[in-house]
Structure formats: C-alpha cells, structure tokens
C-alpha cells in the first residue's frame, strides 16, 4: 500500500500549499509504514525538489494547464490504481477540492476536504476538519479502505525532511481534455489572499475609499496583502476580490490586522483561524476584540500611521 500526493505546480514553481501536501503524505506514510509517491505537473528538475519535503518517488508530466478536473482526476486515479495507493492527498484549493469529489467516486473512497490534522490511526482513521465556518470541529471517521483528503493550508507546518529524488516521466499524452481553456488571468504583484501570510484588512471605520492610503502604506511596509469587510466591498470602496468573511474568502494567515472592522459574526467566520489577530477600533465594545490577541482602542487615523512608522523602524534595525 502507498500514499499518492498530487502536487500542483504553476510554471514549474510550487506554492507552500503544494509542499505542505507532500509533507502531509510523507508523514502519513511513515506513520503507516507505507511509502509516498508524488505526482506533479512540472519539469523533472523542478519535480526533483519535492524529495526535500518527503517524496520518495516522483512522477512528473509537463503541463501548465490543470483546468479540466475530469481529465486530471482520471490521471490521478489511474496512477493511484497502478501504484497500489489507497490514500490520495490533494491541496485544499479550488483545484484540489474539485478533484477530490471526483476521485472519491472513481475509487469508491471516503472523502474529507479541508483536513486540519494528520489522521489519527489509533481508532480507525480519523481526521479533523473545521465546520460551521470555524465554529466547530468535526472528527471524521474514514471507513472505506480507500481515502481522499484535501489538506487545509497552514495546518501541519512545513519542514524539509529528505533529499531531492530523480523524477520519472509519466506519459499523460493519451488523456484528452473535455473543457477548452480560453484564458488564464492572474493578479500580478501581491500574494493572493488565500495564500497570504500577512493580511491588513479594513472596514467601514475608514469612512471612505479616499482614506485607504494609510492601509496601503501599512501593508506595503509589512509586505502584507490588503483585504476588506463585506460592507466595504458592497459599496464599491474596494474590489470584491478583497472581501474576506463567510461569503467572501476565508483566510488563515499568520497575522491578520483588522482596522475599523467591528467584527460581525459573518466576518469572524472567515478570519478566525488566523494565527494572530490584531484589532484596531475606537469602540471598546466592538465584538472583534473578543477574537483578538492584541487590541488597540484608538482612532485608526492616529494609530495606523504610527504603527507603520514603528514597523519601518523595526525593518530598518
């Protein structure tokens, strides 16, 4: 038996979330006494690096386009079958979650998305997953002999645990796409919100879009991505792709700085998994303070430029 990981590459580069699934697969295999195989869409050179994160065998096929989950799920399932893999590990992103359901049906496997822990093998095969937008945790017993898991980012940490391994080419030329790619657009420059480690977010307390300069200065100094609350996106002060919360993007950065956001339950649901939360609000009764690690009760227009200045000093030292 073995564990199969699919590690997604973009232009022969791996995001942290792709390396984390390799780590997850390697740790699971080691606790089961099985081995881990990684399938990846990158050049042999780029793919070899996955050995550093625990891959024991790497199969690569070169493709920049993973837009057809019907075709890709067939490739992954075929590799799982031919390599006797009983567990398939995927990233918990738009691609991984779309693949997971398909692969679970193909393999008649148990499926859990957004797992936050390694499986507990003491009492069957139990993984945890966050439910109700972070208000609860579900402990899933995966009963079928085959399993499909997508692993939530920033869940188990990332460590180097091996040496590069020579990738073996996997021939994917016989697979045909059923969906035609017209165009891929990527936001250039800043780190996209779902992957950002540092996020500076602002809400209605900003009073108007013309005041966002201090937020951008702070984000730039920190190397952070900017975000906003729903009312701010709905009134058009900020673009919709910045909206974090239950009906926007759910994020889990290392640091979330909330400025002038009261902390409605729907907003908290999308950000309460952040490792450290700083809240700046002039209303000491703002519900957000209850979810915060550090709080500053003050006028944001005074305190934000002061924080930027303190950070500049810190970065320069």
């Amino acid at each position: 038996m073995s564990v199969l990981v699919f590690a997604e590459a973009i232009n022969n580069k791996y995001k942290k979330s792709s390396l984390e699934v390799v780590n997850y697969g390697a740790k699971l295999a080691s606790s089961q006494g099985s081995n881990v195989i990684v399938l990846t869409n990158a050049s042999a050179d780029a793919a070899a690096e996955l050995g550093k994160y625990g891959a024991q065998k790497v199969l690569n096929f070169e493709s920049d386009s993973l837009h057809d989950n019907k075709m890709l799920s067939q490739i992954i399932s075929d590799v799982a079958n031919s390599h006797n893999a009983d567990t398939v590990i995927l990233s918990d992103n738009s691609k991984g979650k779309s693949l997971a359901g398909r692969i679970a049906i193909k393999l008649d496997a148990a499926a859990v998305s957004s797992a936050t822990t390694l499986p507990n093998l003491e009492d069957g095969f139990v993984v945890q997953k966050s439910l109700f937008s972070g208000k609860a945790i579900g402990h899933y017993q995966m009963k079928a002999s085959k399993k499909v898991i997508t692993v939530a980012g920033n869940s188990i940490g990332l460590e180097e645990m091996g040496q590069p391994v020579a990738a073996e080419a996997f021939d994917a030329s016989a697979y045909n796409a059923t969906v035609e790619m017209v165009e891929t657009k990527r936001v250039e420059g800043t780190v996209p919100l779902p992957e950002a480690e540092l996020v500076v977010s602002a809400g209605r307390g900003m009073k108007g879009p013309e005041n966002w300069g201090i937020i951008e200065d702070l984000a730039k100094t920190l190397g952070a991505t900017t975000a906003c609350s729903r009312p701010v996106a709905d009134t058009g002060w900020r673009p919709h792709h910045e909206h974090v919360g239950q009906t926007g993007i759910a994020i889990k950065p290392n640091l979330y700085i909330a400025i002038g956001i009261s902390g409605a339950i729907q907003h908290l649901a999308g950000v309460n998994h952040s490792k450290t939360i700083v809240v700046i609000n002039k209303d000491p009764e703002a519900p957000f303070f209850k979810a915060a690690d550090y709080g500053i009760v003050a006028d944001l227009f005074d305190v934000v430029p002061r924080l930027t200045e303190a950070l500049q000093k810190f970065k320069a030292s």
Binding site: N69, K97, G101, R102, A111, S114, S130, L131
Partner: peptide, 16 residues
C-alpha cells in the same frame, strides 16, 4: 454549504 464547508458534492455528481 456554509455549515459543513465541504465543496465535494459538485465533483461527485459530475463524476457520477
């Protein structure tokens, strides 16, 4: 769904 946050049903139906 905003309760179980699974995102699995769409892929499963497609495959079936």
């Amino acid at each position: 769904t905003i309760d179980y946050n699974g995102s699995l049903v769409g892929g499963m139906i497609s495959e079936l």
